[in-house]
Each structure stands twice: as C-alpha cells, then as structure tokens.
C-alpha cells in the first residue's frame, strides 16, 4: 500500500491516507491517481477551482517527501507553476502529480496561501 501524509499549513490536523495506486481513479477530478484524486477520494478537501484541469494553481502543494515517486511534471503543469504564488523547488499541482509506486510514501504540505487564495477570493469582493 502507498501512503500519503498531508500537512496543512493553516494548522488543521494532519491526515494520512493509505491506498493502492492501482485502484485509481478514486474520484473524478484531476489525473487518475493524482494527489488531488487521492485526497478527494478519501474525503479530504483540496481546492481545485478549475475542476482539476491544470488551468489554475489552487491545488498547489509542496512535496516534502517522495517527490521522485511522483510522475514528472509536464510542460502545462510547469507553465502553471510559473505563475503560482509561493513557488518552491518541490512545488507541484495536486491535479497533475500522480503517485506511481505501489509502496510510495509521500508527504505534502498544503500551503497557507493556497488555502487563503480561495477563501479570500470568496470573501473579499
């Protein structure tokens, strides 16, 4: 079984999901087997304003462990990440980064600004 540990930078309790990558898709948004797909399929919310189509950066995550066990970023994801606030060397879009190894252990951080970006856009106008 693969393991995905999720740390929320806004202080929400950490979550750990165990799953079999071969059973993807787990939901219907994002690439099958992607971090977004896995989290939504296990009832953990990750924003995806564009529906998981690689057309925004609201599912931006920072990979703390296991980056090499994820699918390589394609050009479209890199184009989007170029415009993402708070970009780091291990930033990925949750809708595009697919967990491939059956025993992968991945840790991701959901950055505060990703969460705030969405809530502020809903509140401010």
């Amino acid at each position: 079984m693969a393991k995905l540990r999720v740390i929320f930078e806004n202080g929400a309790p950490e979550r750990i999901v165990e799953f079999d990558p071969a059973k993807a898709p787990f939901h219907h948004d994002g690439k099958p087997g992607s971090i977004l797909d896995i989290l939504l399929g296990h009832k953990i919310h990750l924003e995806h304003a564009c529906g998981g189509n690689c057309a925004c950066t609201t599912c931006h995550v920072i990979v703390k462990q296991g980056a090499q066990l994820l699918s390589e970023a394609e050009e479209q994801e890199e184009d989007m990440l170029d415009k993402a606030p708070g970009l780091t060397p291990t930033s990925r879009l949750g809708c595009q980064a697919v967990v491939q190894a059956p025993d992968a252990e991945i840790t991701v951080v959901i950055p505060k600004f990703t969460i705030n970006l969405v809530s502020e856009s809903a509140d401010e106008q």
């Binding site: 219907h28 948004d29 304003a49 564009c50 529906g51 925004c56």
Partner: peptide, 24 residues
Amino acid sequence: AIHFIPGQFISIAIPLSDETRTRP
C-alpha cells in the same frame, strides 16, 4: 461586483445528488 482581469474564470459549484462539484 466581480473584480476580474479579462480572461479569468469563475468556479461554479454544481450541486449533484451526492456531492457538489466545482467547474470553471
């Protein structure tokens, strides 16, 4: 008002029977 830049989208909540989906 919606303060947007030309080209941007809104994300609409689509209430289905079992869940709410997000579509741009």
